[in-house]
Write a protein that binds this DNA or RNA. Structure first.
Lengths: 135, 135
DNA sequence: GTTCATGCAAATCGTTTGCACAATG
DNA sequence: CATTGTGCAAACGATTTGCATGAAC
């Protein structure tokens, strides 16, 4: 699908440091956090450049963007807790009948010193409509 | 915490119709989708009003906002698939050691005619630091 | 010296807000 | 008539983009 085989990327101190910072922290920084950390080293650093480099690093597969889903809010009159399926082709969101498994929270609570109260699951894949179109 | 016991809301045709539309669809509309559907009935409808009403309906518990997490992107040098815990107090995001359960995808695929390839889980609750502060 | 990276500012996109007027109860 | 809802336009915050200059190779 996405073929940019050419490793057309040059070396850049800024990008290098962004990657190092991300590798050196357990937290999940925002672009702004990285920007603040790097202002000292690169006094003229711009947010635009931080974003550009983050996108390049994601494209290179060196980092991940924590992907909670779409960029805009979606609303739902179905109040019961339920999981969602999101089609990677057409973006459709489907409610799932899969029973909500509250034991998962317990497993987290037993494994860590966190207190998990609830959770969401999003499944990603291809919906039946898009599956047909491709075939 | 949040005490606005008074049902201080009046009746509004626009809000009523937004709720009806949400109840009448299986999709998970965006504000813009609702806006488009309602332009005919309310030629002067504004996006601002759609958003205001959606927020009110969420506050009333009549609809849900599909909540994928934070408003800004977060980045992560840990590429392996893993689940996340999000602290509802301080917003911290913690990687979980909980093994990724690919059988969940199979359960979805058996239950539906979708083809789930991967999934994310986000747990929500209180992290240990915030837990201490509250106690 | 061609191409990619950068800083800067302006632009974009989804969402929120301030305000004067209209609708509700 | 007191208060909430509305349209409008401006404001907002996170992210992207156009452009002239600077660094990499």
């Amino acid at each position: 699908m996405k073929n940019k085989e050419k490793s057309k990327y040059r070396h850049s101190k800024q990008r290098q440091r962004i990657l190092e910072l991300l590798r050196g922290t357990e937290t999940h920084p925002t672009a702004n956090w990285l920007y603040d950390k790097l202002r000292n080293e690169f006094p003229n650093l711009s947010m635009g450049n931080v974003y550009r480099n983050l996108n390049i690093l994601v494209e290179q597969g060196l980092i991940g963007r924590i992907d909670f889903g779409s960029t805009f809010d979606r609303f739902d009159a179905n109040i019961d807790q339920h999981y969602h399926f999101i089609c990677e082709k057409c973006g459709a969101i489907v409610d799932l009948e899969l029973p909500v498994d509250d034991e998962l929270n317990e497993r987290v609570n037993n494994l860590t010193n966190l207190k998990a109260l609830r959770h969401n699951i999003q499944f990603y894949g291809i919906c039946s409509k898009c599956e047909k179109k491709t075939e």
